[in-house]
Design a binder for these strands. Structure first.
Length: 302
DNA sequence: GTCCAGGTCGCGC
DNA sequence: GCGCGACATGGA
């Protein structure tokens, strides 16, 4: 049983990050609320390990079912940095928040980092699985994808499937076995593109690109439109655009317009003063007002 | 049966 | 550029 420690930024808040959005409810994550432990099945080269992630002092403490050598440890550190947005500087957002009555609580809780998958492919697939469906079905689609196609640990726990594993399944199999519906086509196209090298998600991510350019880049992906592109950017720590969906419209309508329908542009204007933190500004409002709305989807404690 | 859920895409104008 | 319908699935 290996036990590893990786330092985190001073303003890092573990549970608010884990529960920042629904990702902690999607396989191969599993949240143990009682023990404050995030379970994660992760691939390292050809190996699949079961990790238990906790926050202790100024570090993430990782327990693994298998010893990790130096190479795997470095890979784990990179993956943890992405999963918890450890390299994201959220000081400016905290500063802006502390100057606003409605967001003063943000700096106190350390809210501001979004939980991510270990790589952009996983996040893109999961985002596609959230479109035009219910959260319950999203959880089901991802669960089936992982259990049907994911490589397994020694203990039999499946990791998130690689692009080639998904690409090697047929569209029909993805539809029938993973219940992806019409998304089977786009997820298969994405997986195939990444597996064959025609799509390079890490190259598509360009920190030097302006926000609009980056948004357009993500929109070239199959199944990714304005909503998905903005979401994908947020998971890279770029909150320039709000992912407009039925949830955003419902929230702004109820909170600011007494339930009356208003144009998207009107809703978006409300957040324009937040500059490159618009999505996070909206998301923190939603999060604060409905922090417990996802609890019913958490699996019963063991 | 009908509508719709944290949308996207292709088509016609 | 902009409106519109189709698209799988499962629950209300």
């Amino acid at each position: 049983m290996a036990l590893l420690r990786f330092p985190v930024p001073r303003n890092f808040a573990f549970e608010p990050t884990v529960r920042s959005h629904g990702w902690y409810l999607l396989e191969p994550f599993r949240w143990d609320r009682e023990n404050g432990t995030l379970h994660r099945v992760e691939t390292f080269g050809r190996s699949v390990f079961e990790l238990r992630i906790r926050h202790r002092g100024d570090a993430l403490e990782i327990a693994s079912d298998h010893e990790l050598g130096p190479t795997h440890q470095r890979e784990l550190q990179r993956k943890l940095a992405r999963m918890f947005q450890l390299d994201l500087d959220i000081d400016e957002f905290a500063r802006l928040s502390s100057g606003t009555e409605t967001h003063r609580w943000v700096a106190l809780t350390g809210f501001g980092r979004m939980l991510c998958g270990a790589n952009r492919f996983e996040d893109a697939v999961k985002i596609i699985a959230t479109t035009n469906t219910t959260w319950k079905q999203t959880m089901r689609m991802v669960e089936l994808l992982v259990f049907e196609l994911g490589a397994r640990s020694k203990g039999g726990a499946p990791a998130f499937p690689s692009p080639s594993r998904i690409a090697s399944a047929s569209v029909e199999q993805l539809r029938e076995r993973c219940r992806l519906g019409y998304r089977a086509t786009t997820i298969h196209a994405l997986a195939r593109g990444v597996a064959e090298g025609a799509i390079d998600l890490d190259a598509l991510h360009d920190p030097r690109a302006d926000a609009a350019g980056q948004l357009l880049a993500w929109r070239t992906l199959p199944g990714i439109g304005p909503y998905g592109a903005a979401h994908l950017m947020a998971l890279d720590g770029r909150h320039d655009f709000i992912a407009v969906d039925t949830e955003f419209r419902r929230f702004v309508r109820e909170r600011y317009h007494r339930g009356r329908a208003v144009a998207d542009a009107t809703m978006l204007r409300r957040y324009s003063r937040w500059g490159r933190w618009k999505y996070l500004a909206y998301w923190s409002e939603l999060w604060e007002s409905a922090a417990d709305s996802l609890v019913k989807y958490e699996s019963p404690s063991e």
